[in-house]
Write a protein that binds this DNA or RNA. Structure first.
Length: 459
RNA sequence: GUCCCCAUCGUCUAGCCCGGUCAGGACGUCUCCCUUUCACGGAGAUAACCGGGGUUCGAAUCCCCGUGGGGACGCCA
């Protein structure tokens, strides 16, 4: 195990979104790549905005995405507690150090961090008030991704609110010191905060960790970074929609990072092996749900049969809709056959309930447009009659057996397979799309097929 | 407004650090092929170095200025 220690430090004040997941992922990847330690720390100092429910969303999402933490809530560790709401004594202790060093003062009931330098009053016309500026030298940030960045930190700032609670900048730095964090990997939106943090590290006489400010994820439509309210922003949404976590992780890893060759679909082990700071971009990335959907499909198609069935079943159970309930009530081996027949055809598990509905009920929807089109062309009823006669005795044991039989029939009549397909498909499924016709027959079974044939013939 | 970061196809990106390739891949879109519908797959097409200066024999690549995009300016995190 290396001495690299990174942390993901979310605050449970909202749902867990794509940007947070990506930050967590880059931290996790770096920890796994270096053989370091991945720490989960909950920044819940703003009691008004926190909730237990949001906390569970964080745990569930991280677990679902496969990002296990080595230290943190639930698993413990030598540097706990890992929830800031439980670290009050530590913060008081660190505050005493700063005060002893003469770096704090009280104003308006709050405790401020005092910068070193000459003071002067200036009117800030953006904020419309007089502020005290401190003549300081620029703070230097050596960023692993941005390089050398300088920013002037020239105003004292609050570290303890008048209600007695410490603020983000303070607890963030104190915990990074106390938890011996070596690399701070976070969104670029924190780059401007970093000068505050560096000044605090220096005031504590603590070593400054390496910083890596990663590019932001921008919303796909409209300006600005992606936020909780944006379409497709929430991790739990993908979980609900049956996306494969490994596909989402793979997609996310490519947002702002590249293995530098043309690989895109990669095993997580390969991503871990290749991931490092030089591969991280400096520019923001726009979220693209089409590419994510494509990635998801690629993973879905490659899933071994047993895995696919398990995931599909999980999805059906989670949906708990009338359609999925009926499917789940079906005979297990039949259900399995239906799912496997559909696997190569669908792009997402979301499509599955609608795609397979007619397997589980005789009362399936018939697409009127398709019906009119199919029944209005050629002699569909005659074809259906011929097929009925054939299938009454045909061998249903395999797709190829059925296929051979239909092809022989078609050949005898001087027709093609296609002449039988559209009407047969309409009869058994009410639509013009679906799995292979022969697979459909085999799984549905002779009785159902013939019953559905006669229903259409009588209509 | 001030400060900070960034800038290659519509999107994600490779190339940039260490100047010299028809600027490569993927998603999307379109065409064709495969085919038993719909997909998958295969072949192809489409499409980019933000602008202007400079350095240089030569700039996507180095420098400067513009412009554009993003972020931060809370007793939120």
């Amino acid at each position: 195990m290396s001495n690299v220690r990174v942390r993901f430090a979310p605050s449970p004040t909202g749902f867990f979104h794509i940007g947070s997941a990506r930050t967590a992922l880059f931290n996790w990847l770096y920890a796994r790549h270096t053989g370091g330690t991945f720490i989960l720390r909950i920044e819940d100092t703003d009691q008004a905005r926190n909730s237990e429910e949001f906390l569970n969303v964080i745990y569930d999402s991280l677990t679902w995405l496969g990002m296990t933490w080595d230290e943190g809530p639930k698993v413990g560790g030598a540097f706990g507690p890992y929830r800031q709401s439980e670290r009050g004594d530590i913060y008081k202790e660190y505050l005493a150090k700063l005060t002893a060093a003469g770096r704090t003062y009280e104003k308006d009931g709050a405790i401020w961090f005092k910068l070193l330098g000459e003071r002067s009053e200036v009117f800030d016309d953006h904020r419309k008030k007089i502020v005290t500026k401190v003549a300081t030298a620029p703070t230097v940030i050596d960023d692993q991704i941005r390089g050398h960045v300088e920013r002037v930190e020239d105003e004292d700032f609050v570290i303890f609110r008048s209600d007695g609670n410490p603020v983000f900048h303070f607890v963030n730095v104190v915990d990074d010191i106390a938890m011996q964090i070596t690399h701070v990997i976070r969104g670029e939106d924190h780059l401007s905060n970093t000068s505050k943090h560096v000044e605090l590290f220096k005031a504590f006489g603590a070593p400054v960790p390496a910083f890596a400010h990663i590019p932001l994820i921008l919303k796909q439509n409209g300006p600005g970074k992606m936020s909780k309210r944006d379409q497709g922003a929430l991790i739990e949404e993908y979980q609900k929609r049956g996306y494969l976590p490994e596909a989402l992780v793979n997609f996310l890893s490519l947002l702002g990072w590249s293995p530098k060759d043309d690989r895109e679909k990669m095993l997580i082990a390969d991503i871990v092996a290749l991931f490092d700071f030089p591969g991280i971009n400096q520019s923001n990335a726009r979220f693209d749900d089409k590419k994510l959907a494509h990635m998801n499909m690629a993973y879905l198609l490659e899933l071994p049969a047993d895995d696919f069935v398990v995931r599909a079943l999980e999805y059906f159970e989670k949906q708990a809709s009338p359609v999925t309930a009926v499917a789940l009530a079906a005979e297990p081996t039949y259900l399995r056959e239906v799912l496997l027949l559909s696997q190569p055809k669908i792009k997402s598990l979301e499509e599955l309930p609608a795609y397979t509905a007619y397997f589980f009920t005789e009362d399936f929807v018939v697409d009127a447009k398709v019906r009119d089109k199919v029944m209005g062309k050629g002699e569909p009823k005659l074809r259906l009659a011929e097929l009925t006669e054939l299938l009454t005795t045909a061998d249903f044991s395999s797709d190829t057996a059925i296929e051979e039989a239909i092809k022989a029939l078609a050949a005898a009549k001087g027709l093609g397979f296609g002449d039988y397909q559209s009407v047969a498909r309409l009869a058994v499924s009410g639509t013009n799309v679906g799995p292979s016709l022969t697979g459909l027959f085999r799984v549905l079974g002779r009785e159902r097929v013939l019953a559905r044939f006669s229903r259409l013939a009588a209509a």
